[in-house]
Design a protein around this nucleic acid. Structure first.
Lengths: 139, 139
DNA sequence: CTCAATGCAAAAGATTTGCAGAGAG
DNA sequence: CTCTCTGCAAATCTTTTGCATTGAG
């Protein structure tokens, strides 16, 4: 999905963020990833694509892209942080504890209930985190 | 709540886990904590109580107690892990992003919805994590 | 041209671990 | 007595950072 990567480059420039060779490469890697890779994995993929990026820059870039709202950070139990493109609809995650597979899901009722609970206690939600650690039924 | 600590000691012995001076001290500290301290804080409190425990042992003990089902581990965004006694009813957490305050809450409807969602996709829930990062309304 | 971004290597912070000695049951 | 637990210091792992250099706009 190089098209998406180009859109993002422009958005970054518009926001006054410099689009370096390294950032462009990472944008392409991220736009082309369907899964939820961590920094080391993104670094590997970028290198495999001949990017020439240091791991430190990967970390700095991820922070930058998150600030720009281009990617979201996922922190599952104790593993290194993973990342996903932020262009999709808001969703939560289900993690198969046996296989490590991550499944995304959307449920509006849960979203609404969360907002209600917070409101009842006098708060508004800034963001939230809902992770279901699951196992295939009968496994 | 030294009474609770004594109950726990017995449960540990019954499970074949040795109740050392250090573990007994940590059990007392944990039973007496209403908040959600991390390992370093628990170490400080134990030391303040004259326990004489190393930080390494605090970590090892926390792992042991978690395995025994005596305490639960909380991993909020990027902070060191925190711990709480597991003797209460299951609940989730709301974290005030401005003050760092942690509020516990219970909502059966959310629990049920989670189970339904997992079931619909052919999974059963092993455990889950729901955290609401919130801000006081109008702040 | 200028200032933000990069690479490198070192630092940081949380947690884990190898090993020899101590102590619970 | 035995075998688990502890302390210590060193190691690990992920992520961050200082500083000199590079390169985007």
């Amino acid at each position: 999905m190089d098209h998406r990567a180009l859109q993002l480059e422009q958005a970054l420039r518009d926001a006054g963020v410099r689009v370096t060779r390294q950032r462009a490469a990472l944008l392409r890697v991220i736009a082309g990833s369907e899964d939820h890779p961590d920094a080391a994995e993104l670094h590997r993929r970028a290198e495999a694509a001949g990017a020439g990026v240091s791991l430190a820059t990967v970390y700095r870039t991820l922070t930058t892209l998150q600030t720009q709202g281009v990617i979201d950070k996922l922190e599952f139990q104790g593993e290194p942080a993973r990342w996903e493109a932020a262009d999709q609809r808001h969703h939560d995650h289900m993690i198969d504890v046996d296989t490590g597979e991550v499944v995304e899901f959307i449920n509006d009722r849960i979203e609404r209930l969360q907002a209600e609970i917070a409101a009842e206690m006098g708060y508004e939600i800034v963001h939230h985190r809902l992770e279901l650690y699951v196992r295939r039924r009968g496994a």
